[in-house]
């Protein structure tokens, strides 16, 4: 579960993709997410997936993506089986396609989050006219994923050291066993959020609506090229998705 989230966590790195303007990457993620909905043919979706994977390789974040894939395997299997149950066994290909669609969708956004700093993302949101408070909440939520997963691990370790066995017992017993883990986690996070709020207010957060920003974004030549590439690729893929008879 937490491994899956790691696939959306910014990874410090340097690659042509990292250097792109965040807005270009958002366009990329949006269009690829949209492309998933054009066709439910497996071969088409796999083509999209391969294109996405190529981009991840260029961005040098493919390892993280594989980690996310491992973490989300249960989900993918679940989507597949549920679809199979509801659509009937005859529709294996369809069930697979729904699963693949979910995967491509996740991958498209994973590229964005893996290669863009939360600060850049929030800057884009501000530029789009979203109030800074919401933007900040969003970036902080992303920021705390790694901290949260570390903390959760420590709490689980501490309770297991006192003999808690999460694997044992029936369904209801197991749910009850999560209380000693959830309570410290929640208490800890609430306390932390108060501390954070105090620290921010004491540094003048909320003093004025006219914030100044340290970085300004600029569109460069590479961004324009990438954008053109994305647009043409999207048009081509949309056309192919609609017009070509994809097998399966």
């Amino acid at each position: 579960m937490l491994r899956m989230l790691r696939g959306f966590e910014y990874l410090r790195g340097d690659s042509p993709i990292h250097r792109l303007d965040p807005r270009v990457k958002i366009v990329y993620s949006m269009t690829f997410a949209a492309l998933c909905f054009i066709s439910l043919k497996n071969t088409f979706l796999i083509t999209l997936l391969i294109l996405n994977i190529l981009v991840l390789i260029i961005a040098k974040v493919i390892k993280r993506w594989l980690m996310m894939l491992r973490g989300s395997l249960i989900f993918l299997v679940m989507i597949f089986t549920l679809n199979l149950l509801f659509q009937g066994l005859a529709n294996v290909w369809l069930a697979l396609a729904y699963t693949l669609r979910f995967l491509v969708f996740m991958t498209a956004f994973s590229m964005l989050f893996l290669t863009t700093t939360p600060e850049d993302l929030s800057l884009v949101m501000v530029k789009l006219g979203i109030p800074y408070e919401y933007t900040l909440a969003f970036t902080m939520a992303i920021r705390f994923v790694p901290t949260l997963s570390r903390e959760l691990q420590i709490i689980i370790d501490a309770q297991r050291s006192r003999g808690l066995e999460l694997e044992k017992g029936n369904f209801f017993e197991r749910i009850r066993k999560y209380m000693p883990i959830l309570i410290p986690l929640i208490v800890h996070e609430i306390r932390r959020s108060y501390l954070l709020a105090e620290a921010m207010e004491s540094r003048g957060f909320g003093y004025t609506r006219n914030r100044s920003y340290y970085y300004e974004m600029r569109i460069r030549k590479n961004d324009v090229l990438a954008l053109l590439g994305i647009i043409s690729l999207t048009v081509v893929m949309a056309f192919l998705g609609k017009k070509v008879m994809w097998p399966f």
Partner: peptide, 23 residues
Amino acid sequence: HTVAELARRVGLVFQNPDHQIFA
């Protein structure tokens, strides 16, 4: 051996009490 088995012989007290207090 499982953690539960070993924990009976080895008591580990973690650094931060907030990571375990829940009752």
